[in-house]
Measured scan of single mutants.
Amino acid sequence: DHWHVHIDGERIRLDGASEEFIRTLEELIRRGTDARELKEIIKEYLR
């Protein structure tokens, strides 16, 4: 599956992301997590 998110107007691909990770991201977004912080979390995950 190819997922991607838009954060700060930037399109970030989440290739190979699990549904669990996507749900976690959605939860963080709902909580109002800062965009820079979200991008860091995604970069760490994709390593």
Rank of each mutant, 00 (worst) to 15 (best):
R36Q: 15
R13D: 15
G9Y: 03
L28K: 06
E10C: 02
T33Q: 04
F21Y: 03
I12G: 00
E44I: 05
A17T: 06
L38T: 01
D15Q: 11
Y45A: 13
R31L: 14
I41C: 04
H4P: 03
R31K: 13
W3V: 14
L46I: 12
G9C: 04
R47F: 09
E27P: 00
T24D: 09
I7P: 01
L25A: 01
I12E: 01
D34C: 05
T33Y: 02
R31H: 11
H6Y: 04
I42R: 00
E19Q: 11
I42Q: 00
E27D: 13
K43A: 15
I12R: 01
H6F: 04
I42C: 02
A35Q: 07
I41K: 09
S18Y: 04
G16H: 10
I42P: 00
E37C: 06
R23K: 15
E10H: 12
E44D: 14
I42A: 01
R36H: 13
H6G: 04
G16A: 04
D34R: 08
I7T: 01
L38H: 00
Y45E: 14
I29C: 03
R47C: 09
K43P: 02
L25R: 00
G32Q: 05
K39N: 07
K39P: 01
D15W: 10
R31I: 12
E19A: 14
L25E: 00
L25N: 00
E27N: 09
E40Y: 05
E27G: 06
G9H: 06
F21E: 01
R30P: 00
D34Q: 10
E27H: 09
G32H: 05
G16V: 07
E19H: 11
E20T: 09
H4E: 12
I12C: 01
D15I: 13
V5S: 02
R11Y: 15
I12K: 01
E37V: 15
R11W: 15
S18T: 14
L28G: 02
R11A: 05
R23G: 05
E26I: 11
E37T: 15
L38Y: 01
G9T: 04
R11H: 15
I12Y: 06
I22T: 06
S18F: 05
F21V: 04
E27A: 08
K43V: 10
E40R: 12
H6P: 03
L28R: 04
E27I: 08
V5K: 04
I12N: 01
G16S: 10
L38C: 01
D8E: 12
I29N: 02
R13I: 15
E37L: 14
E19T: 12
I29E: 02
H2V: 08
K39D: 04
D1G: 14
I22G: 02
E20M: 10
R36G: 13
R11S: 15
K39L: 15
D1V: 05
H2A: 12
